[in-house]
């Protein structure tokens, strides 16, 4: 129960943030929460099922382009466009996962990377939908038939992102604590045994990839109306690697760790890029440090003195 108390405390602090933080900090925080949602969605695959994806930018990019396209070309209100885009990412993921789960281990990772690269290429070529190298720009936030204009303000949008993140967290927590989550843990520890116990492990893996992509797609769908644009950088392999690093640095298999990892990444990028062009190098060194000396990640370090509370 301590875990849920912590959850409500964090929710209250985050909900109060607009009253205490300056505008530019709110912009950073909004982006950090979006990235946190993306990293948390990847944790379902990496941390809970040991499905290492090198292509999670695909989920983000799909969501970002889909919501951007819907907002540019239809009059759908913002929340509807965002949810539709997330759904699309999840549905596409079923097909992707069906192919990728024909392989396991490194081959699985390579197939996820290949799929993300394929989308990257499509985004460059399919000019009428994606705007090619220009991307989609000037993405509006339609108020819809009920005239909901609150999301057009910076703080209003922040609350939309916060609600999505908290909702997704509760959903993921329930998922990994359910009988379904127990099977994922079985796959993580011993897939061959899980199969021989009568579980259709491939179906479970496809399901978790679809859910992971839907939530990652939700993050992307929130990003493009926030930034006002979507471009091919969102689908680039480097970004997939960065999200994976956020998960590992934050603490895989904890849901909350990857959110912290994303915030840490954003903060570091913001601080270091003021001093040096090659901030990514420092981040690389920090990543190596975590892998070697603290594989349990930030959240693991924070909770290691009271291991009983490590799981919330």
């Amino acid at each position: 129960m301590t875990g849920w108390r912590l959850f409500f405390l964090a929710a209250i602090v985050l909900a109060a943030a607009p009253f205490g933080l300056p505008i530019f900090a709110m912009t950073l925080l909004t982006e950090a929460l979006i990235l946190g949602l993306l990293a948390m969605s990847l944790d379902l695959m990496v941390g809970y099922t040991r499905l290492i994806s090198f292509g999670h930018a695909a989920a983000y990019g799909l969501g970002a382009y889909a919501s951007g396209y819907l907002l540019l070309h239809t009059a759908l209100p913002l929340p509807v466009a965002v949810l539709a885009a997330a759904l699309l990412a999840g549905v596409v993921a079923i097909g992707v996962a069906w192919v990728c789960t024909m392989a396991t281990g490194v081959s699985f990772s390579m197939l996820t990377l290949a799929f993300a690269q394929l989308l990257y290429a499509v985004a460059f070529k399919w000019t009428s939908v994606t705007g090619a190298s220009d991307g989609l720009a000037g993405i509006p936030r339609h108020p819809g038939p009920f005239g909901i204009t609150v999301f057009q303000t910076k703080n209003g949008y922040y609350y939309l992102v916060l609600v999505c993140l908290l909702g997704a967290y509760v959903f993921c927590r329930a998922l990994v604590s359910s009988p379904f989550g127990a099977v994922l843990r079985g796959i993580r520890e011993n897939e061959a045994k899980t199969l021989s116990l009568g579980y259709n492990t491939r179906l479970y893996k496809i399901a978790v990839v679809a859910l992971s992509f839907a939530l990652g797609g939700l993050a992307g769908a929130l990003y493009s109306p926030f930034a006002g644009f979507a471009n091919t950088e969102l689908l680039f392999w480097l970004f997939s690697g960065q999200v994976l690093i956020m998960v590992i640095v934050g603490g895989q298999g904890t849901l909350i760790g990857p959110i912290l990892g994303a915030a840490f990444f954003m903060l570091l990028e913001h601080v270091l890029s003021a001093y040096t062009e090659s901030w990514a190098l420092f981040f690389g060194l920090i990543f190596i440090g975590f892998v070697m000396f603290a594989p349990q990640g930030i959240w693991g370090l924070l909770t290691s003195r009271r291991p009983k509370n490590a799981r919330i």
């Binding site: 843990r185 520890e189 011993n190 045994k193 199969l195 021989s196 579980y199």
Partner: peptide, 22 residues
């Protein structure tokens, strides 16, 4: 597939112990 065979009512153990160690 082996999961279907298990679901038909055949449960097995392995010669080399196969568990969920954690």
């Amino acid at each position: 597939s082996s999961y279907q065979i298990c679901q038909a009512g055949l449960s097995r153990t392995f010669q080399l112990t196969s568990l969920f160690p954690e």
